[in-house]
Nucleic acid binder design. Structure first.
Length: 303
DNA sequence: AGGATAGCCTGCGGGC
DNA sequence: TGCCCGCAGGCTATCC
């Protein structure tokens, strides 16, 4: 669920108090949440940036990097259910289970605060890196350009070139982090709807104009969601425990069998790229729109 | 070798 | 009421 907008909103909500803070103590409550270790290397407190000062927070795609002293740091991947939260001063109703790591920090004003990494489903993890170069050459080298940081023009070209000669559906391309970083199931469906493109449209058959329209729709959707604090379907909250509100404006995601908000046609759903996908059979065509009805011949079975 | 698929993991909702 | 099953999904390993 945390995709680019959720991670970016989290980054912003963390940065105020985290940047400039010194890490007094790091505790690992569950060892196997630290991933990407070199063989034979034991986890030490410094891997969890204990003794370091936080210099900055960077994001690429869905990944967040906490950069500390001398460029060493920690990548946080939220996976499905990961959260990075300030522990509230007073008792609150927020869940206390599945906390896997905890940092005791002293901020720029000398206040002590506790940050926690919680991840019930454990699809996420923590990835230590030794330097910014190590981060870029090892942890982030397999990622394509970031879906909001990359200019629309070059991102459109990157997608079109990746789709050239490929057999894949356009939605599979959007979800492939090595082609474009940050898009998950929610925003792929929303962007395809906004651009009027069928999720199963063959990537190689989209022309430059339609790739550009798709990337513009994607960019618009992601930016609007960041501003709305992301989409909270179940567990996503920012560093302060606040929920997002972008789910209220979803046009297709989670709306299977409901009427299309644009044309009233019943929204269909089915697996595309082995993910649950929702689309409008009327607004999203497989081919460039002509006057006739879009083809439905090989659509996945509706549910 | 590209591309599709299984599996990881927990919580939750529907059905009985 | 309570149990069981299916589903959700980012990413990696594995298979075709």
């Amino acid at each position: 669920m945390p995709e680019l907008p959720e991670v970016e909103h989290l980054r912003r909500s963390l940065a105020t108090d985290l940047v400039g803070a010194s890490v007094e103590e790091a505790s690992l409550l569950r060892v196997d949440i630290v991933r990407g270790r070199r063989p034979g290397h034991c986890i030490v407190a410094a891997d969890l940036i204990e003794g370091s000062t936080v210099l900055g927070l960077e994001r690429h795609g869905k990944q967040l990097a906490i950069v500390g002293t001398e460029g060493s740091g920690l990548v946080v991947r939220l996976g499905m259910s990961g959260q990075l939260r300030w522990m509230p001063d007073k008792a609150s109703g927020l869940p206390r289970d599945h906390v896997h790591a905890r940092w005791r920090l002293r901020d720029a004003h000398g206040r002590f605060r506790t940050l926690e990494f919680r991840d019930p489903r454990r699809f996420g993890g923590l990835f230590p890196f030794r330097s910014v170069d190590d981060l870029r050459s090892r942890l982030w080298s397999g990622l394509g350009p970031d879906a909001v940081l990359e200019p629309v023009e070059s991102l459109s070209i990157a997608l079109m070139e990746a789709g050239h000669g490929s057999q894949r559906a356009v939605k599979a391309m959007l979800l492939d982090q090595s082609i474009v970083a940050g898009v998950g199931n929610i925003y792929a469906d929303e962007a395809l709807f906004a651009a009027g493109i069928h999720p199963q449209h063959a990537a190689r058959r989209l022309d430059a104009e339609r790739w550009r329209r798709l990337v513009e729709a994607l960019r618009h959707t992601l930016v609007a969601s960041i501003e709305a604090g992301g989409s909270t379907l179940r567990d996503y909250v920012d560093a302060g425990g606040r929920r997002g509100s972008f789910q209220k404006t979803h046009q297709v995601y989670g709306r299977a069998r409901l009427p299309c908000l644009r044309c009233g046609e019943t929204l269909r759903s089915g697996p595309v790229a082995s993910r649950t996908t929702v689309w409008c059979p009327n607004c999203q065509s497989r081919r460039p729109r002509r006057s006739g009805r879009p083809a439905h011949a090989h659509e996945p079975q509706s549910r």
